[in-house]
Design a protein around this nucleic acid. Structure first.
Length: 260
DNA sequence: ATGACATAGTGTCTATGA
């Protein structure tokens, strides 16, 4: 079974590229981020024509996440992260969770937190804390789990071409990196790092400053596996070529192949 | 190398992304 994650940067505008990729790679489960459309505007019919059922948590203009499953309807287990006592409701559509073929799959789009410092960075850290709290409760169940999405954190300086232009960027700050390490310490396996421990591939290349042709990338999209799923991992990778096609998203999809 | 790009809606400009 193949589970993929792809920040599409606008699912309506990106539909031709998304469909071409689905058609070629045929993932069984796909976590999409940055839909930038309402749940009603999501292109269900076009994806259904390719054999995919969709669970959608949309929002006008910004954010938005969805889970696609080939040939089956995903069973929703959660929409939005649980709130701590007194915490205000989250109006941003960034978390969706579903049961698929015996695995609970969480699709997430963590806030980018720029500019740093500031209220958006504070929101990022609060969101990350909420995610870690929920992830801890999930992994404690021992159930097969996958957390996939755009975490908006570059885990280490080895996960970026150069830190020079990014020193003041929210993606590289010590606090989100510490939150990332705390999350992994719960027992999650970083699938891409597991597959490529020395040179872990990038998943994002900015549109600006010729960064794609220069391979000036960042690793900010991640797939995390709980222990029972980690045991089943056969392979993981990044479909890097999709970043180079006409009208590409600034992210490339990543995926993990699991034994049945 | 803080953007020379790309996105969607409020729309020929603004806010946002990372």
């Amino acid at each position: 079974m193949r589970i993929a994650s792809y920040n599409v940067n606008g699912v309506v505008n990106r539909l031709p590229q998304l469909c071409a990729w689905l058609d070629v790679t045929q993932p069984d489960v796909v976590c999409l981020q940055e839909l930038k459309c309402t749940t009603a505007a999501f292109p269900r019919r076009e994806l259904k024509a390719l054999g995919y059922e969709a669970l959608v948590h949309g929002q006008a203009t910004w954010n938005g996440v969805a889970i696609l499953v080939r040939g089956a309807v995903p069973l929703e287990t959660r929409r939005g992260l649980p709130l701590a006592k007194g915490e205000p409701a989250d109006t941003q559509s960034r978390y969706l969770e579903a049961a698929v073929n015996g695995i609970v799959v969480a699709c997430l789009y963590l806030p980018n937190g720029n500019p740093w410092p500031g209220p958006k960075f504070d929101y990022k850290l609060a969101w990350f804390k909420r995610l870690n709290r929920h992830a801890a409760s999930l992994i404690k169940t021992g159930h097969p789990l996958v957390l996939a999405g755009d975490f908006n954190v570059v885990p280490t300086d080895a996960d970026i071409y150069s830190t020079a232009s990014w020193k003041d960027n929210a993606l590289l700050q010590p606090e989100p990196r510490a939150a990332w390490r705390a999350l992994l310490k719960q027992g999650w396996t970083d699938a891409l790092k597991q597959q490529f421990p020395d040179k872990t591939p990038y998943t994002f290349w900015s549109y600006l400053r010729n960064r794609w042709p220069r391979d000036a990338g960042l690793r900010i999209d991640h797939v995390l596996l709980s222990p029972p799923v980690s045991k089943r991992m056969m392979e993981a990778g990044v479909d890097k070529a999709l970043r180079g096609i006409e009208g590409a998203s600034d992210h490339a999809p990543l995926w993990v192949e699991l034994a049945d």
